[in-house]
């Protein structure tokens, strides 16, 4: 399965799940592939946040990066 990862404001990545090392890849694995830490982004599926350790079950996710500044 190919997953489209839309990092808001930065670009879109297409990631082939079969090419990831894990047998059941998580959203954190997708983030690692594009060198993002789960501590600096939120992953949204259909606009709802999901835990990063959940297995990837959809073909499209949105990634929101944290904004610095209080």
């Amino acid at each position: 399965m190919r997953v489209t990862v839309d990092v808001t404001g930065e670009g879109v990545h297409e990631i082939d799940l079969e090419r990831l090392e894990s047998a059941s890849p998580t959203y954190a694995d997708l983030l690692a592939r594009i060198e993002l830490s789960p501590h600096e982004v939120s992953v949204l599926v259909d606009g709802r946040p999901v835990p990063e350790d959940a297995p990837v079950e959809v073909e499209q996710i949105t990634v929101l990066r944290l904004i610095k500044g209080g």
Binding site: P38, H39, E40, V41, S42, P49, L66, I67, K68, G69
Partner: peptide, 25 residues
């Protein structure tokens, strides 16, 4: 509270947080 959770809270409650970084940072 980790920064990510602060952002998640603001997102979930739809608080009017301004989301861009200081251009001089």
């Amino acid at each position: 509270v980790p920064e990510k959770e602060v952002a998640l809270y603001a997102h979930l409650r739809d608080l009017p947080a301004h989301i861009s970084e200081c251009p001089h940072s």
